[in-house]
Nucleic acid binder design. Structure first.
Lengths: 197, 197, 197, 197
DNA sequence: GATGAATGAGCTTTCATTCAT
DNA sequence: GATGAATGAAAGCTCATTCAT
């Protein structure tokens, strides 16, 4: 078995266990059992329990970012790009339920460790949004007075809150498509009937 | 000392300690020391560690909800109400830094307990937004095709993400007023130059 | 309320609680609640938790010893005296269930405290038996080669074991009278058909 | 070191510590230290503190029962069997002082747990006595009107009380042999000079 | 004398991490 | 590289006892 296989097996097991129990309530032995590996083996691939979480985040976000960027490159319309980003984000909730739950929940800990972790992957991810907005502004499609640095956060936050609802409340009132459409419409057209610009 | 004083002293101490260390890393003895009270005394007022967190959330959210609702009642314009809600939420980040951090972070744990805890206070809080939207729609100011149930989440999520940025990244690029203005503008007018409605 | 009344109320409450939960699992607050008295009040009458147990034992055994001795003094036949002692001991199981249980169980703890406690009341109680045996030997009714110091223990032990069975196994196969009769017969006549004396 | 060795080491350490301090006053760390093992190691072999006590009882009683039964099988005379049982029981007090003390004392706790624990080993042990009595009755050696169910308890109780005296009062007035002889004589011949049968 | 809120030492149990095999 | 038994620090919670009122 190649080294990376075991590393990956443990990562996937950790995703499942963290999603089920939460980071603090998850035991190393749970992950080991899920990965069909001895407890000690985990420490051949990760420094400690936190390292599994960070590492998991880096790896999985890396894959997601790559995919999204590849897709978006093939598009030219900023509106289309944004819609894709939103739809893709929401679809992850179904396709990678456990992962979504871990990314959603566990990376929000307010402990010192987490505060120090410079979450560059996350920044890279949401910067995809600001890039789209910037393009839209240059093409004259989006208002120039929108601050991409704030809008990217607002859009991500909105999506993230949708995700939280989706994860916590299993009775989904809206489909992913409806939700994506509503969210895009909101950010593109706003709520006002008569624009004040 | 009145009973409620000690209860309150412990609650305030817990806010500080949870904000600093996070719920799981906070020790009961930390809270006791911060409250200048014996460890055992805490258990005269709370059933267990979780109970402190929940109870803290209920109490503090209760106060915030009351204040916001009172203020909003004095206004008639939905746009004005929304702006107030957004500004008020962001101002809490400065006025009640520790509390904001705890509400932000600790109530996102994915453990079984949290999943079961029906967070009615939280729902009550974000329903203030949907009520405003509904009013706006009835007055013909807001688009009828906006789903208030989605929009309230989107707006809260956006604010929440701003809060997270504010808490984690201490180098604030924008003032609270600028941020509030940007966010309101985004949700009211959208990003598109030419509306598609 | 006279002092002794409160002392007695606490003692009776302790008997109930110790019988129900055992000494170590009984809480002072349980006893206080049962006695309808404040926790602190107990410490006006007893030095500590152990003191309640010891004191309870001394008091209640004192009463029992007095009664038994008074009754036995009115009798002349050692056989009759022994039968009375046995019957009386077993009847206590019904009349004073809780007390019997506490005396039975709780004074058998092997902790250092208990080992040091010179249980003079207990010795006084079982010496009633040896006195009876001695009288019987002097009257030529009982074998001279019986060692009263051993026989008294054997008889008490037998009764005590009956008591234990009675307390632990609520399905009583024999009545108290049958049991008393069997035990007396055993110690008086032995099991052998042909005596070896 | 084989697994059973560590299990056994902990059991033996527990016997010593329970005998010295009593179950409730014994700390897990005392047992761990006595067994030269880490506190946590105990929980690899036992579920909790109670489990050590129960398990210890089951194991050690099991061994004792096996030995006694094996020896008794080689004898034919019920009188001889009874004498052996009595002598053997009293000899355990010397050979396995600590164990005797624990079995004596700690299994008399009146807590809920103990009341529920169906002490089958103990029943198996005293049933050895009733079997002997039954045999004696069938051979016409013992009186038919002796109830084996009561006599077994009486004999065990007598022995148990001897044991208690032996453990608590270190100034032994009689040797084990003398005691055994006296007890057997008492139960075989009774105290009366003239039998009433 | 009576109260009961407050104290804080004490203990069982858990679990991340190590290391001999 | 892999194992999993062993470690031992750590912490939530209890409850006998105190003492200001």
């Amino acid at each position: 078995m190649r080294v990376s296989d075991k590393h990956n097996k443990i990562t996937q097991a950790a995703v499942k266990v963290f999603a089920r129990k939460g980071f603090f309530n998850a035991r190393i032995s749970d992950i080991a059992k899920e990965a069909k590996v001895a407890d000690g083996t985990i420490y051949l691939y990760f420094n400690n329990k936190y390292d599994i979480l960070i590492s998991l985040f880096e790896d999985e976000m890396g894959k997601i970012i790559l995919q999204v960027k590849n897709q978006i490159e093939t598009m030219s319309d900023p509106q289309e790009k944004l819609l894709f980003f939103v739809q893709n984000h929401l679809h992850l909730l179904d396709n990678k339920k456990d992962l979504a739950e871990v990314l959603q929940m566990e990376l929000r800990q307010s402990n010192e460790f987490m505060k120090e972790y410079r979450n560059t992957r996350f920044i890279e991810y949401i910067n995809i949004i600001s890039t789209i907005i910037h393009e839209g502004q240059e093409q004259g499609i989006f208002h120039k007075d929108i601050a991409p640095g704030i809008a990217k956060r607002a859009i991500f936050g909105a999506l993230d809150e949708m995700a939280r609802l989706w994860i916590l409340d299993k009775n989904h009132q809206y489909t992913i498509e409806e939700t994506a459409s509503q969210v895009c419409n909101l950010f593109l057209n706003g709520m006002l009937v008569t624009q004040t610009h």
